[in-house]
Simulated scan of single mutants.
Amino acid sequence: MRTPEEFDEIRPYDPEELPAIFEELIADPEFRAAAEQVLPEVPYEEACNRLRRCRTNLEVQQTFFYPLLHGIVDRCSDGLVLENSQSVDKRVPHTFITNHRDIVMDSAFLSISLLDNGFGNTMEIAIGDNLLIRPWIKKLVRVDKAFIVQRSVSLRQMLASSARLSRYMHYAIATKHENIWIAQREGRAKDSNDRTQDSILKMMAMGGEGSIIDRLKQLNLVPTALSYEYDPCDYLKAQEFQQKRDIEGFKKSPKDDLVNMQTGIFGYKGRICFRVAGPLNDWLDTLPADMPKTELFTAVASRIDKEIHRNYKLYAGNYVAADLLRATKEFAAHYTSEEKTRFEAYLESRLEKVTLPNPDTAFLRERLLTMYANPVFNYMAARQE
């Protein structure tokens, strides 16, 4: 099935396009260098032949990305679980909307979790064009079922770009029967205070048919909470907070994004948990049909936040951070003295990794504690509502 031409610039490659793209990738020296780095035990020609035998994007994922990602789970974490997946109908495509911690791994880990939990398919993944820093990377992610969010267009072009993106998402769900992953906000929540941006929901409602509620329902939204025990990029995020504080107009460079991607992939994560909150459609049906747009989007964003917050998996370190940040023992029942000592040692080891010429240790420590404490505060607030 050929995807409509209007989506050619942003969509994943169709299966019939893959052979030509494979050859372009194989001939690219940068792709070869990357492949030999992540698959050192596989001769390059053998890897190329395996790639050429793949007929669909899913086959590429199952042949290369699935074992590669499980290898990362084995080497760089203490396990990956997907909980409450039975709350969604696996025969129906869904849009999984999650909190956002890591540039690459959030969606990658959820994709393999779906396969491991009987979904039979992975997801198409929304990825910002600011991360596609090399031509081969752009090609590879489109092979890997990613569709592109155009963030580098002008303000004048943004409305048309967002409308096309929305139409594509509706097409992927309704016609291609693909699951979708999208973050609840643009960019990572570097302080872990996860909040859904109304603009994401407004974009989603540009496509589809009927009322705004109808259009959101057509995407089968499923809030999904993601919890890493340890964030490999935590010290980089803290470092960026100080840079933004001290340097007017500071923005990360493509090199910074690359460092964050590499650190997020290969850094230690502890335990990793996705917890599915369940589809939103029944709740959407309870909203008044004449609800003003602004109120509607705010209400939906708040509902997604609540579902994500109350489904966090909290670890001992989260509770330790909450008590250290506020200088209390409010959550002491949730950790032992050994766990507190271990987390404090972890905290110091992260501060030692900061490479700023003038590190503000007290500020950096507060930022790190906030990252680990905010899920506790959000969880408690959501449970009390």
Results as ranks from 00 to 15, higher is better:
M1H: 15
P4E: 10
P12I: 05
L18H: 04
L25P: 03
L25K: 00
I26G: 03
I26Q: 02
D28N: 12
P29V: 13
P29I: 05
Q37N: 10
L39Y: 08
R52V: 05
R53G: 06
L58A: 08
T63N: 08
F64Q: 09
R75T: 01
C76F: 02
L82C: 15
S85I: 09
V88A: 02
V88K: 01
R91H: 15
V92L: 10
H94E: 09
I97V: 15
I97K: 08
T98L: 14
D102C: 02
M105E: 06
I112H: 06
S113Q: 09
G118V: 07
N121F: 02
N121D: 00
T122L: 03
T122Y: 07
E124M: 08
A126W: 07
A126D: 02
I127A: 03
D129A: 14
L132C: 12
I133S: 02
I137N: 05
K138V: 03
K139I: 00
K139F: 00
V143S: 01
K145L: 08
K145H: 03
I148L: 13
I148T: 08
V149P: 02
Q150C: 13
Q150E: 06
R156I: 09
L159Q: 10
S162I: 04
Y168S: 04
M169P: 10
H170N: 14
Y171L: 08
I173D: 08
I173E: 12
I180F: 12
I180K: 08
R185D: 13
E186N: 10
D194S: 11
R195K: 06
K202F: 10
M203K: 09
M204K: 14
A205Q: 06
G208C: 13
I213F: 13
L216V: 11
Q218E: 15
N220P: 07
A225N: 04
Y228P: 01
E229P: 02
Y230F: 08
Y230M: 08
P232Q: 07
Y235S: 11
L236T: 00
K237N: 04
A238W: 06
Q239A: 00
Q239P: 01
D246P: 01
I247E: 07
D257H: 10
M261Q: 14
I265P: 00
G267E: 05
I272K: 01
I272Y: 12
C273R: 14
R275F: 02
R275A: 02
W283I: 06
W283E: 03
D285V: 07
L287F: 04
P288V: 07
A289D: 14
E295V: 12
T298D: 09
A299S: 11
A299V: 03
V300E: 00
A301W: 04
I308G: 01
N311F: 11
Y312V: 09
K313A: 13
K313P: 05
L314E: 06
G317K: 01
N318S: 13
Y319R: 09
A322K: 08
A322T: 11
L324I: 13
L325E: 11
A327H: 09
K329L: 10
F331M: 09
A333S: 09
S337P: 06
E339Y: 12
P357K: 14
D360A: 04
R365Y: 11
V376M: 05
F377N: 15
F377I: 12
N378G: 05
A382M: 06
E385Y: 13
